[in-house]
Design a protein around this nucleic acid. Structure first.
Lengths: 209, 209
DNA sequence: CCCCGATGTATCGGCCCGATACATCGCTAC
DNA sequence: GTAGCGATGTATCGGGCCGATACATCGGGG
């Protein structure tokens, strides 16, 4: 999962570890607080061993001069890495539909073809619907076995599930009618990007046609 | 975190591993799909070594007779385990306020005193508010740097944050006015436990007084 | 009679996290 | 000036937790 995210970011531009962590945090802020260095560096080493990325010591754009001793290590993606990224983007494991997996895949939807986008959105919807049904069962059948706080927790979780299903429904509808909110590559922004709300951005929250 | 959940469930009644996993799944269904056996059994071993629980081979209530060979192992909590449970319930680490930690603590709120409940609810609210501010910053400042799908993901996450903050606000208000939705021990249920909705349950979703 | 799904216990490799250590740079404060 | 401090930066270690896997029993349906 993390492989996909790192490969995706390095495909945009080479980076060193610290930078990568920050970009990861902003891109995946909703689904993962901030990747730990205890995860990042071993993962980078693993990707390097596999041949997906290469390490180039202290690049020319070294803005803070840093009298060396230990230059920053800049990672860049290889051709095999780009292939790997494409494979990971399109693959359909069960982990593609859990919280983390779906989030990472969704974050790179602008580089995914529409058929794959639809498959992932529908798979995620099915997953959430299952979770929702489980919660409904607990709330209706096991109502007298659980205390009020636990029930309230379940109810709140059920709310979140229903909300996410609706969100996914709208995204799927949009996707099917070709109104995808992104074009591959750079995106046409109408000059003022959402100060308080952005009704001109093709979000899935418009009325049904 | 898992220690707290296991100790809490074993405090209600002794259980064997398989049963424990199922109870864990229904009680914590919203925050953790289902605990893996690769987690559960080592954890039980660790709790046993620490002296919080004891293992009693194949109890008298062995309903499916099972011609032995390997009887089911029933775990029960010790006096030290109950102390440990109380400590874990009241303690205030940073992990108390993340998704998993808060969920487990909340699930055992019926055994927590009101002061601790308030502290945890407010800590959680602060945590979510910070996450919300981070997302708002990304959405307003980095609007043109991210593609539309990533932005949509952030927007959805922001929605979830705002929703959870409101939920917490209502719980805190309820808690402060003494209208806690649970009494310690068993709970008085009005005969028909929520077939479709349960307006008579003291949920935090009633109108303000 | 045989397979299948539920019940049940247990281990292993591997991902990921928090804590920790170490080093440099630019800024402010004394 | 120099001492601290926060941001930048790389890296390791112990341990929690997961998915996959193995093994075993039991009840029921084909």
């Amino acid at each position: 999962m993390l492989d996909l995210a790192i490969l995706g970011l390095l495909q945009e531009t080479p980076m060193h570890g610290y930078e990568l962590r920050k970009e990861l945090a902003t891109k995946l802020g909703t689904i993962r607080a901030a990747i730990s260095y205890g995860t990042l560096y071993p993962t980078l080493k693993r990707l390097q061993t596999a041949g997906w990325i290469t390490e180039s010591e202290s690049d020319p754009s070294m803005i803070p001069p840093m009298t060396s001793k230990r230059g920053r290590v800049v990672y860049k993606i290889t051709a095999e890495g780009k292939e790997r990224f494409a494979d990971l983007l399109a693959q359909a494991g069960p982990e593609t539909y859990d919280d983390a997996g779906f989030g990472v895949h969704f974050a790179f939807f602008s580089r995914t073809d529409q058929a794959t986008r639809l498959r992932i959105l529908e798979g995620r919807r099915r997953r959430i619907e299952e979770r929702r049904e489980g919660l409904r069962d607990v709330l209706s059948r096991a109502g007298e076995r659980l205390d009020a706080y636990t029930l309230e927790l379940q109810r709140h979780g059920l709310d979140a599930c229903e909300r996410e299903v609706r969100w996914l429904e709208e995204l799927i509808t949009n996707e099917r009618s070709g109104r995808a909110p992104a074009t591959p590559g750079s995106f046409d922004i109408p000059a003022d990007p959402a100060r308080d709300a952005s009704p001109e951005l093709p979000r899935p929250h418009q009325d049904r046609p």
